[in-house]
Write a protein that binds this DNA or RNA. Sequence first.
DNA 1: CCAACTCCTGGAAACGATTTCATGCTGGTG
DNA 2: CACCAGCATGAAATCGTTTCCAGGAGTTGG
Lengths: 370, 370
Amino acid sequence: MLVRWPQIASEFGRPLVLPYALDTLWKRFHTGRQHCARRKVRLVAVTIKDVARAAGVSASTACRALGSGELVRPETRQRVRQAAAELGYQPNRAARGLSTGRTGNIGLIVPDLANPFFPSVVKGMQARAREADYAVFVADTDEDPTVEYSLVRALSKQVDGIVICSPRMDEDELRDAAIETPLVLLNRRAGRIPSVTVDNVDGMRQAVAHLVALGHHRIGYVEGPRTSWANRERLRGMRSVTAASGIELVELGSFLPQFEGGVAAADQVLASGVTAVVAYNDLMALGLLSRFTARGVDVPGRISIIGCDDIVASSMVHPPLTTVSLPKEMTGRAGVDLLLQLMDNRTGTPRRELPAHLLVRGSTGPAASR
Amino acid sequence: MLVRWPQIASEFGRPLVLPYALDTLWKRFHTGRQHCARRKVRLVAVTIKDVARAAGVSASTACRALGSGELVRPETRQRVRQAAAELGYQPNRAARGLSTGRTGNIGLIVPDLANPFFPSVVKGMQARAREADYAVFVADTDEDPTVEYSLVRALSKQVDGIVICSPRMDEDELRDAAIETPLVLLNRRAGRIPSVTVDNVDGMRQAVAHLVALGHHRIGYVEGPRTSWANRERLRGMRSVTAASGIELVELGSFLPQFEGGVAAADQVLASGVTAVVAYNDLMALGLLSRFTARGVDVPGRISIIGCDDIVASSMVHPPLTTVSLPKEMTGRAGVDLLLQLMDNRTGTPRRELPAHLLVRGSTGPAASR
DNA sequence: CCAACTCCTGGAAACGATTTCATGCTGGTG
DNA sequence: CACCAGCATGAAATCGTTTCCAGGAGTTGG
């Protein structure tokens, strides 16, 4: 039901294809020439009134028929829906937003899109959000907690709820933010704020168990940022698990949670005399590996490395990295789920904890004999 | 000027901090209790009427004062702006959108967020978009041209313009899409659609010149997807440059533009007897490198590798990858620039071509003697 | 036979910002 | 003194959707 309309097209400056009945457009054009000329986009929109007219009902009935469908005779609803489909009606989100106070958008804040961990989370969020007919704004803080807070404030006007992935803010700020707008945290717990986390302690348990089985007795842990909740959890896990197995734990850091941080940590790791090391994340593990390789230290012959996250790059290096794999896309999906739940039912503190699992690849091997 | 309001807070179900004068809120609450209860968010909003009242003018004047500032006495404008600042006024985007027909959003479509090339582009776009007070919707097509087109249609209702990065659609579809909504292409040229591209031919020239200087005479090119314009350009560049230098070019592929594609290509590269290979992108180059390392082929001793893009992972491997570095964030910024330009002046076909430059790292060396 | 009730529908009033149109005021000119 | 241009301002209409309210049609029960 597409109609070409040369007049408008010429005023518009280029060819136009309009999903609209010709006479209606013509009337609009002539009754409000100036208006149309200024607001060009308007011309092509099918409104709910058009649908209502086509179905022979009022706008209010059309609205009810297209919405919940309650309080309308099934026969009427059917007629309206068909008219809407035929005209290709798509509700104007701005108008709906104005009327309902909802935007139909959700926001996602991540520390650094350049860290391959986060794009995976974004993918998961988007997939789930689209299913629920929400669109996602993504914002990046460059690992700056200050930016993080101001982003929450700025975004909160444009979205119905916000998901923050691995927030670096302190707990008070998070609480403040959660008061202003529905908020869900990923990879972090704080107060009564809904959150999706991964069982870091169990992840570390699997890593240590693997190393113990390979005969390692002295294991290093390279810390990431102290502001990271995940780092604190992983450290806690390493401590309790090594203590339980009678293994000696050497704590190193903290370092930047990036490749460079791992490079910087490498020589300290070697000097500490451990035969295996667990890094806060894969980027750092890759940094360790790179520096070891450059210094001619054999991995895993002389030292074993385990990362955390399972980013794509970790299987691209040689040897491929043994790592504690986190369900990244699932984390994103679960975050949206919780947010949706939170948005129509403000009570409660939903929480979700997802499992991690160890992925054994080439960077771990039997402990070197002393 | 924050006021706690226990009554509303209790109805709201949790503590609330309101940036608003107490008496006005009180009035609103009592005149429209039900309404307020339903539309909870509304309660805390400062509208332009509040600003107008505070400044002692009408809403229309307030609007003019906050906008262009024309047609208002400077003194009045000053007063209105101050009132707005004091009340913390933030215009309701939905209402503005309804009135102006603009959304204040722009859309970005990328083939695959998991490819580290694209997040960098996203970062650049976002930085520029925020400067212009636009928000960015990001969507991911999973390399599927069909999804790409339907995403354009879906997004176009919610945004003022769309940027597509490395589109895989064919040219006709792109043209159709560009008719419906302002559109800018990144890494692709098609018809008269505005675009930001990188000088791929010159990038290949630099790569080949480097290899020639190292004594290579027979060079391979591993193709990416045939639907990729960048791939065609790079191939074209390789052909013309090698022809001009009297070098023999071996074309291989096409392969998936991912790590796995490079792995798959590696053995064919070896069998072809070249001493150096240029890959369509870094992910593929990393795949080649990985497979070579696994087979015990010395890089760069036996064979040199050059990638393209300069993703972060390419400096994390051993040896670090020599690559044709593309200005990723700049591409994103320039894309937004063009889109902004296009949105208020529909005529013209702005184009921007950015330079590439070769980054020599460890994966290239002198040609092996035969 | 009328009151009370349910079910569906249409009219109208929001929502908040923008823009058009009308009006009052000032100052300058014939 | 009359008239007009130009400026600053306010009132009102507009965008498209949702929701409230009133009312009509039909049913049930006293």
